[in-house]
Design a protein around this nucleic acid. Structure first.
Lengths: 112, 112
DNA sequence: AAAGAATATGCCTTGACAGGTATATTCCTC
DNA sequence: GAGGAATATACCTGTCAAGGCATATTCTTT
């Protein structure tokens, strides 16, 4: 999870991923489209690959990279764990504050 | 989007977010639970706040932090744009390769 | 086999950022 | 109003990662 996020957090890497979302592409094309130098693209793809975000298939001298779905599925699952709790978040905060105030009131009353 | 990912990519920040998923908490409690020093927690919360991931409400000297739902919703929406394309990704790659091979065959045949 | 295309990798430099520590700030309690 | 609790910020330091550039590697073509 953390690995996925770290890989996606780099701006150029995110651009690469979004480019690959449309279709698999060879390194050179990515570099050209994003106006990045080829070595940097290769390095970014390495990081993405290590994180399991992309796959590669050689075709002649070209290396065609494509997205893998698993990490995105995991990200999705992770996000789920937030969706539920999110709804009553504010209610709880109000609740928490009310309780603290009440506690203080009690203490105050007790003290006097 | 990128801001959200960058904020979440830092391991300790991710831990903080996951801790806040359960309920809003004051800084000190976060520090204690995660065994982090208070200043670092404040800094991380600053980053999370700048990225719009958390909200804050002062209660006496305490600052209670809570998650905001918007960034997570956006992340979710962003993920959607992947889900669809993901299915026929591999088909397309095969397709692409087949085409290239076919093209080469044609060229070869043409040359000879 | 020589030349060229496509890509990966190594080395270097620089900037950003996380942690550590001290200190400032704000509010509460007595 | 003095002391203490909770938090934010400033400053310093070390580390790591991204970009730049040169080069190695692999495959194709002629």
């Amino acid at each position: 999870m953390n690995a996925t996020l770290m890989a996606l957090a780099e701006p150029n890497r995110l651009r690469i991923v979004e480019l690959l979302r449309d279709r698999p592409r060879p390194v050179g094309e990515i570099a050209k489209r994003l106006r990045l130098r080829q070595p940097q693209v290769s390095k970014h793809l390495r990081v993405l690959s290590d994180a399991g975000l992309v796959d590669m298939r050689p075709v002649a001298q070209q290396r065609i990279y494509q997205l893998r779905s698993e990490p995105f599925d995991e990200l999705d699952t992770w996000l789920e764990t937030f969706r539920r709790r999110m709804t009553d978040r504010m209610d709880r905060l109000d609740d928490l504050i009310s309780k603290r105030k009440a506690k203080k009131e009690r203490e105050k009353d007790h003290g006097h």
